[in-house]
Design a protein around this nucleic acid. Structure first.
Lengths: 351, 351
DNA sequence: CTGAAAGCGCTAACAC
DNA sequence: GTGTTAGCGCTTTCAG
């Protein structure tokens, strides 16, 4: 997750010269400052020759645009709100840092909120300071909220939202991984290892992401011809504490599962802890896998086999989508699917 | 670590009005815009009556200073460099997010770097764009670097740096916890529990912070009248991998320790993993404690007893010190000690 | 102690 | 296609 890429953020290393202005560039290139402005903003109606001359001078003088002056004049919106209300500590932290990182290049002012205050947001939008909202699960699938947001004409992107047939009150851009496919792949991995009694710890069923992961688990079972067993599925809430409880419930059954698939890493960690408490060795006696590839997943013992979802990509693109929509509000709605991957570590083995 | 405080960052929630300008305030208060400027910048030479009038109007109109306009005009430096080169993944991540957070209120542009490029930094300083540097361990005690930094007249604050008798090439502001006292307290805690054979995993001895924590461990032993035993001290490098190795080394001794004090949480996690591998139950057979209170320390099993150091406070103050020094370069050098605390969780028990 | 005027670097609006 | 002009909101002169 949020490793900052040193080279990218290191403005100082790349600009060892005194800052030059648009005027300097204009003089150098022998054009007007407006032309320079057009070129550096990628506007049309500039001849190729001029563009080249300007670009050369920009390079020569190591011109860097003055963000303060630009935003003072252009009054482009720059507040971006991320709404975050998730019980998973690691998810919450990962979203936070990646949101901060994603906003840096745009100079957006990030505001993290636990819920969306429509009135305040509407005012901010009308006064031209709001770029838009990034909604994370479970809010990204809260249809009442989505409805009000679209009625208020507020741009928003839904992270990890349900994708599928367009529904009536469907709106906003979407971005996420294919949770269902990922969960099915993980299930298949467990089955390939030889497991047939596979427990599943689901998130709250009010979360669409939880439902999708559960469906993926069922898909995997079905593909292998293994029938569902409702006693092997228990419902947590994506928190560590719930993983502890659900793990215990699963393991204390008369015929206990040989593998447990927790639908996020926080719950997998809890599950690992309860296995330890019950004296079950992982992966020898029990395999445990997670979902998310939280930062701690390689540092707990045993290192967790899990599904990697690239939250940095996701937040980066979410912010980029909003930024693009700022210039062109009527651009077609995006639905971006980010690649996921299985990361196999030490927490599972053959039964 | 980096939990973002929702209320603080939520500019939108607190300013549901259209932004008003210094002009509006001046008109409201019946004064000139310069007077408003003086008041909001805390400048002297303003009568109490005027100040009050202005403040009232500021409140009334919900005036928020326009950072873009201010920085365009005042050309105050706003680049802040954090130099970070530490093997601990969790420490690195925590510093990153807290640095980003700490810079937000000042509108500083953060640049994370793996080393300090003096030439580039000097140019940036001379052209008035550099606020200063925040040095983290081990750089915060790299005397050659410190020396060059002070000769180049660059402001810097040293996080987690050695404190004590002023040395010749001592310079810069300092901020950190009292590592030595903290380590001694943790050792005392272990001893109070009944442990006498306490293993210690130290960081690389080239790190002053590692040396201080080791000294604290010795202090704790000494206070209890327990003699040092060099076979109980092994040297890691603050990484998870080294904790794994060192833990193994400690545990495979003929008369193994009943408790292990790893001098950071990454190594403690590694140590826990090696205990698990060797079939030693923690805390039943072996107690393990860490240092730092990394985000994962409550999620691994067993939840880690550790020393909490408030990196958010530290980075916040570090940035604030630099900001203050920007207005008054000759202010006396600060040496801030942040409070630490023992957080007792489940990873240790009586032998 | 207070104020009037100039202008930071850039882009919007309008010429040409 | 290109250039000119005005002015964003603030702080900095420099006069009172």
């Amino acid at each position: 997750m949020g490793r900052i890429h040193f080279a990218e953020t290191s403005a100082i290393q790349t600009s060892p010269l005194k800052p030059s202005t648009i005027k300097d560039v204009a003089r150098e290139a022998g054009v007007s400052i407006k032309t320079v402005s057009r070129v550096i903003n990628g506007e049309p109606h500039v001849s190729a020759r001029m563009r080249e001359k300007v670009l050369a001078s920009v390079e020569l003088l190591n011109f860097k645009i003055n963000a303060a002056a630009r935003s003072l004049r252009s009054k482009l919106a720059k507040q971006l709100v991320v709404v975050l209300d998730n019980p998973s500590q690691s998810y919450t932290e990962a979203v936070q840092i990646n949101a901060v990182l994603a906003c840096q290049p745009f100079g957006f002012e990030l505001s993290l909120q636990g819920s969306a205050d429509l009135d305040a947001l509407t005012i901010a939008m009308e006064s031209g300071t709001l770029v838009g909202l990034v909604l994370t699960p479970p809010l990204s699938n809260d249809f009442e909220l989505l409805d009000r947001l679209s009625k208020a004409d507020l741009p928003f992107v839904r992270v990890g939202a349900e994708r599928g047939p367009i529904e009536l009150n469907e709106a906003g851009d979407k971005i996420g991984i294919d949770d269902r496919v990922a969960a099915s792949e993980m299930t298949a991995h467990l089955i390939a290892l030889g497991h047939t009694r596979i427990g599943f710890i689901t998130g709250a069923q009010s979360y669409d992401v939880a439902r999708r992961r559960l469906m993926g688990y069922y898909d995997g079972l079905q593909k292998a011809g293994i029938s569902r067993n409702s006693s092997l599925v228990v419902e947590g809430d994506f928190s560590y504490a719930s993983g502890l409880l659900c793990g215990e419930a699963l393991m204390s059954q008369t015929s206990r599962p040989t593998a447990i698939f927790a639908s996020n890493d926080d719950m997998a960690a809890g599950c690992l802890a309860s296995a330890y408490k019950l004296g079950l060795r992982v992966p020898d006696t029990l395999s445990v896998v997670g979902f998310d590839d939280a930062p701690f997943s390689r540092i707990i013992y045993p290192a967790l086999t899990t599904v990697h979802q690239s939250l940095d990509d996701m937040m980066e693109q979410a912010v980029a989508i909003l930024a693009a929509r700022r210039s062109d509000p009527s651009a077609p709605l995006r639905d971006v699917v980010i690649a996921h991957s299985l990361v196999k570590r030490e927490s599972c083995a053959a039964p």
